[in-house]
């Protein structure tokens, strides 16, 4: 704390100086972040309330088990760990940029701002992949006595608990040949849509190995709305943070902060960037861990 060297008669509230010994912009950035914390808090608490009101939710280790270029490999939480470490690391490069700014080292600030921006872009890329994977991945779901395919969207959730085999056997009788064909292709990789085209439903059913094909009940639809809503709002913060960081990088490069005599803008941008990391700590906790 810096209060040690304070003269005893300092009149903090007489104007002309900050009672918090911090610039107006920085104090206001803190209050903005506090209000943003309440916004995120309200979203996460709403999600938690809804989850508490339901008897079942989804198993995060099952939903988030894919990794780019690893196909159907079961790698629970691996990809989201990568995203978390990218964000932690870009937080470190940001705080190093602030540190270099304190020492008026323009080259250092430039280097660490570039690394921070790259970290932010990498995170956004990962999130885009994750969303695409969820939105386009089709899963077999037992609805109203038939089997259908479902993606993860704001209104559809194919991640309920698995249907019992006898239920699935019964439902297959009412299932369209198109879905039956994709059930065969799910585990029999030699089969193609053309080679199965002329088979009857009964033939298709006999080719389906239910130990290899998972059919689930639909899960609570609110999973998708909360997941895409909250990670989307966080992703939007990451995106705006990257834009702010790019602006700060350009201003550093143009020597604006050297002219001004201090790098406080980097500190303020850093506050916002760290806040984004802070929110991710809780998004990660609420959606992926518990």
């Amino acid at each position: 704390m810096s209060t040690t060297a304070l003269p005893t008669n300092t009149k903090w509230w007489n104007g002309g100086r900050s009672p918090f010994n911090a610039s107006y912009g920085k104090v206001m950035m803190w209050y903005f972040l506090m209000s943003d914390a309440f916004t995120f808090g309200a979203f996460l608490i709403s999600y938690a309330t809804l989850r508490f009101s339901l008897n079942g939710w989804v198993d995060a280790n099952h939903v988030f088990n894919a990794f780019p270029f690893f196909g159907h490999e079961n790698l629970p939480l691996a990809f989201v760990s990568l995203m978390t470490f990218i964000l932690i690391f870009s937080s470190v490069t940001m705080v190093l940029a602030v540190h270099e700014g304190h020492h008026m080292n323009r080259k250092g600030v430039e280097k660490y701002m570039i690394l921070t921006i790259l970290g932010g872009l990498a995170f956004l890329g990962c999130q885009a992949w994750e969303w695409t994977h969820l939105l386009t991945g089709e899963h077999f779901v037992l609805v109203n006595g038939t089997i259908d395919t479902m993606n993860t969207t704001v209104s559809h959730n194919p991640w309920g608990h698995f249907a019992a085999q006898d239920e699935v056997v019964k439902a297959m009788q009412n299932t369209s040949p198109e879905i039956l064909r994709s059930m065969v292709m799910e585990h029999d990789h030699s089969a193609t849509a053309a080679s199965l085209q002329n088979l009857t439903s009964a033939d298709l059913i006999s080719k389906i190995n239910l130990n290899e094909v998972q059919v689930a009940h639909p899960g609570p639809p609110s999973f998708g709305s909360y997941f895409f809503g909250i990670t989307g709002f966080h992703g939007f913060h990451v995106f705006s943070g990257v834009v702010i960081n790019v602006v700060m990088y350009l201003k550093t490069k143009l020597g604006h902060f050297d002219q001004r005599g201090h790098y406080e803008m980097i500190e303020k941008a850093g506050l916002y960037w760290h806040f984004v990391d802070l929110v991710w700590v809780f998004v990660f906790l609420c959606f992926y861990l518990i």
């Binding site: 209060t3 610039s23 912009g25 201090h262 406080e264």
Partner: peptide
């Protein structure tokens, strides 16, 4: 480090 005049210390 020169910073804004509001900062006393």
């Amino acid at each position: 480090v020169v910073s804004s005049p509001e900062i006393s210390i």
